[in-house]
Design a protein around this nucleic acid. Structure first.
Length: 838
RNA sequence: GCGAGAGUGGCGGAAUGGGCAGACGCACUGGAUUUAGGAUCCAGCGGCUUCGGCUGUGGGGGUUCAAGUCCCCCCUCUCGCACCA
């Protein structure tokens, strides 16, 4: 028998061309059915796709194709997160322009994605570096400015000396730059901030809406990052008078311990330090301490092992209720940028304060006692942080400390010395970047009018492409006269344009919405399209964005809603989130320096796209990391070869049926009925596994079906019905495998004689009657141990089953000389005989 | 330290509500085919075994007729947070 050789490259090129020319996956041309929006995190156009992309996008493509087969109107777009530093650095290295580099990378990577046969609606493709895209970001910026949600502030900032730019707090990981791992320095700079803290509560509370849809750990990470603490602010009067300053404010989560305060500690950076130590005879020592702490960088200062140190300032504050004098210290553990940069010290009830007090001989004052006990400060070897009764606390004595928290806060408010307060760990988002390849911030600086927003009708402020790039990595914008020199939108006089650009995370905070009407030019979105498509039903990407991108996008969704761009009933952008694991090689992350990179295009050259997709999905469940295996992909390739060969070896006898097209196999052999049963079970299992994103087991179910067909093929040609059973199994296998390996399935489907492509076929229905069995294998246990099996008719009654079990030779052997105490029958599954020595 | 997740053959991994542990694949072994190699097809494949069995899901207890699965204690690994007042 001559048979055609399987050439994946030829088959894949054919179907990719057809899908493109027929716009198969353009959602605009298909308007029926309920909507489903599946989105994968868009790539940074670094030059070439890597296996991580292939895995991410293969998962998304299976979801998209499955949903489509289930009758959904599926939006599945793709685009480019195209601004950013690597383009600039690469351009410097290659003596080219970031734009040129970026656009050529996009062209290259688009071709690579198309070679993988993903079902994207390419008509909605976006690139964030195009003015048609970022112009709307500038519109958002101006509206946010109007609302006070974006502001400029001078403050110590995270500065990456190697990237020559500031970083947001979220972009500093263990004191290092998230991108290049350089040590981040602190630098005083005037920067633009987005007031994400104004949404702290909503970002925190709405995490509840994501329970069940997002992985718990991502929700937890966001909750921790936002870091809400409830407590009170308290103002301690300053004994010494400083102009305009009446006292020092602290934040505490334990107002119930207020009477236990025996000292106060300020951050060395606290703005009042100089005023406080003025005139103190040991001011020099204090200054030396401040200098020493300041010299340490963030990383050093935040390690656990750092010795807690402090210095007395010579000054005292006054307790708001007791009027007691409280010594004022500086401490290296107090953070300047959390709370008020000042902490009240309650050594009896806070371990850190306890250690500090013992180290410097400060008094310990017990104000909470465990129920029915008393505490002696001299006997304590650790702080008591549990609940109990308030003591030594004036008229609060005897009160439980839990209600005491509120009571003290109320009393503070009445006395004008404080109030209930909430603190967030979350800081405002610094979006200024001192780099060139980003979206310009649309404001100008005028000598007369100061900072003036650009007029909306003048947008976009276009990033000039004809700049002289600098070798040192600094932005060329400040030296680009044609960009910098402008006229004040307010008075018309000459002015200077802002030369900082926006953090690229701003672009990725709203791109998912732009896809809903990507070609629109007069507005960023259209209300109808947003209302129809949002939220994204399934979002898929790496867990490395658990805080950064996913928090920013949530924030933007709420902001754009409040600015009137988004529908009011959209609270969250991504209803379901799948965080896929990494593709490793030899247990390590793939990297050029390690030399363990597996190139997807080389794999496609060798095995074809279908095999690469199949292996990425089959190797492990999607959330888990998996190790690339050269023999593993061989196995995937072998399986597709097996499908291809089976098809051509049996082709002359195959009928052009649809999936599950054999109505019944009643009058047929056992083999035919078994194959039909396997076919329907495969439809059930594959469907269920796809729905819960267990692609590895879904594929295993199709493999089982193919294996069953190999074993049955010589036996099933006796009758027309048997021929139909076999043909139907083939059609079903192709249909079930289609979302994973679409090209080969389309090709064989067409060769089976179908005019309508598989892409337009519905997901098959399985028939419970076809999965039923006349004979069942029932496990026989004695005292819980498997001793044998027995074949029984499916409708056997309990008594018959029980007696069959008791008379089974293996059972008899194991119950010899014993008394049967009990027989447990699980219908259709097993019989367990409980027996013991007589 | 706190929080989350994980630990199953030589390997990747199955077992969705406690019910025949190891599906599917890789590697390996044997057979068929082949001039040969490769490819392909078929079969075997947790460990021990006196071939009757015994034992086995990180370790130890427990619940149950029955535990990878439920409960308690412990160990290891991965990830996240880490002076947050």
């Amino acid at each position: 028998m001559t048979q055609e050789q399987y050439s994946p490259q030829r088959v894949e090129a054919k179907w990719q061309a057809r899908w493109r020319s027929q716009k198969t996956f353009d959602v605009g041309s298909r308007g029926d059915g309920p909507k489903y929006y599946v989105l994968e995190m868009f790539p940074y156009p670094s030059g070439n796709i890597h296996m991580g992309h292939v895995r991410n996008y293969s998962i998304g493509d299976v979801v998209a194709r499955c949903k489509r087969m289930h009758g959904f109107n599926v939006l599945h777009p793709m685009g480019w997160d195209a601004f950013g530093l690597p383009a600039e650095n690469a351009a410097i290295q290659r003596r080219t322009h970031p734009a040129k580099w970026t656009y050529s990378n996009i062209a290259n990577m688009r071709a690579q994605l198309q070679r993988l046969g993903y079902s994207y609606d390419w008509s909605r493709e976006i690139a964030t570096c195009r003015p048609e895209y970022y112009r709307f970001e500038q519109v958002f910026f101006l509206r946010l400015l109007e609302k006070g949600l974006v502001y400029r502030k001078k403050a110590p900032q995270n500065w990456c000396p190697s990237c020559h730019t500031v970083l947001a707090n979220e972009q500093v990981v263990d004191g290092l730059c998230w991108r290049c791992d350089s040590r981040v320095e602190q630098k005083d700079l005037t920067q633009w901030f987005l007031r994400i803290t104004a949404y702290g509560d909503e970002l925190l509370n709405d995490l509840a809406l994501l329970e069940g849809g997002w992985p718990d750990r991502v929700i937890t990470m966001q909750r921790n990052w936002i870091g809400k603490s409830t407590g009170a602010s308290v103002t301690f009067g300053l004994e010494k008078s400083i102009a305009d300053v009446s006292g020092i404010e602290v934040f505490t989560t334990r107002p119930d311990t207020l009477f236990g305060v025996t000292f106060m500690t300020l951050a060395p950076e606290h703005p009042l330090v100089e005023d406080i130590i003025a005139g103190y005879d040991k001011a020099g020592e204090v200054r030396a301490f401040v200098e020493r702490v300041r010299a340490m960088d963030r990383l050093e200062r935040q390690t656990d092992t750092l010795k807690k140190e402090g210095v007395f300032t010579g000054a005292y504050v006054v307790h708001p209720f007791s009027g007691m004098r409280v010594p004022l210290w500086l401490g290296n553990f107090v953070l300047a940028d959390y709370g008020t940069g000042a902490v009240m010290g309650v050594p009896a009830h806070d371990q850190r304060d306890f250690d500090f007090a013992r180290q410097y001989g400060l008094p310990v004052r017990v104000v909470i006692c465990p129920e029915g006990k008393s505490l002696d400060p001299d006997d304590m070897d650790a702080a008591f942080t549990g609940d109990g009764r308030m003591v030594n606390s004036g008229h609060f004595d005897g009160m439980g400390n839990v209600p005491g928290k509120q009571a003290v806060a109320e009393a503070l408010e009445k006395a004008g010395r404080g109030k209930a307060a909430i603190q967030f760990r979350l800081r405002d988002w610094n979006i200024s970047r001192q780099r060139y390849w980003g979206a310009p911030i649309p404001v100008v600086y005028c000598e007369k009018c100061g900072m003036v927003p650009e007029k909306e009708e003048n947008l976009p402020v276009i990033l000039p492409l004809d700049v002289k790039t600098r070798d040192d990595g600094r932005s060329p914008l400040p030296e680009t006269a044609s960009f910098v020199n402008c006229f004040c939108p307010c008075c018309g006089e000459p002015a200077r344009r802002e030369t900082d650009t926006m953090d690229t995370f701003v672009e990725s905070s709203w791109y998912f919405a732009r896809y809903t009407d990507a070609r629109r030019t007069d507005a960023p979105f259209s209300a109808d399209a947003l209302k129809y498509w949002l939220p994204v039903d399934q979002y898929i990407g790496g867990v490395e964005h658990a805080i950064l991108h996913l928090l920013y996008a949530r924030f933007f969704t709420k902001v754009l809603r409040d600015l009137g761009f988004f529908p009011l009933d959209i609270a969250e952008p991504f209803a379901h989130l799948l965080t896929q694991g990494m593709v490793l090689k030899d247990g390590c992350k793939m990297s050029k320096s390690r030399g363990n990179v597996v190139d997807p295009t080389a794999m496609m050259d060798k095995y074809g796209a279908d095999t690469v997709r199949l292996f990425c999905l089959f190797a492990a469940p999607p959330e888990r990391d998996f190790d690339w295996s050269d023999s593993g992909i061989e196995g995937a390739s072998r399986f597709l070869g097996r499908v291809w060969r089976l098809f051509f070896e049996e082709k002359d006898r195959l009928l052009p049926l649809k999936a599950c097209g054999a109505a019944s196999a009643d009058a047929c052999s056992v083999d035919a009925r078994e194959l039909r049963r396997k076919e329907h079970l495969s439809v059930k299992k594959t469907g269920e596994d796809m729905a819960r994103f267990q692609f590895n087991t879904a594929i295993a179910a199709v493999m089982e079906l193919v294996n069953a067909m190999y074993l049955a093929r010589e036996k099933l040609w006796h009758s027309e019905t048997e021929r139909r059973v076999f043909s139907s199994a083939m059609a079903t296998a192709l249909t079930l495998l289609f979302p994973v390996a679409p090209h080969i399935c389309e090709e064989l489907w067409e060769r089976l004689g179908h005019a309508r492509p598989l892409a337009d076929e519905p997901w098959p229905q399985w028939d419970p009657a076809a999965t039923a069995r006349d004979m069942l294998t029932v496990a026989l246990q004695v005292n819980g141990k498997l001793r044998g099996t027995v074949e029984t008719p499916a409708d056997v009654d309990r008594a018959a089953l029980e007696s069959a079990a008791l008379n089974d030779p293996a059972v008899l052997r194991h119950t010899a000389g014993m008394t049967v105490r009990r027989v447990v029958v699980v219908p259709g599954k097993l019989v367990n005989i409980v027996a013991s020595q007589a």
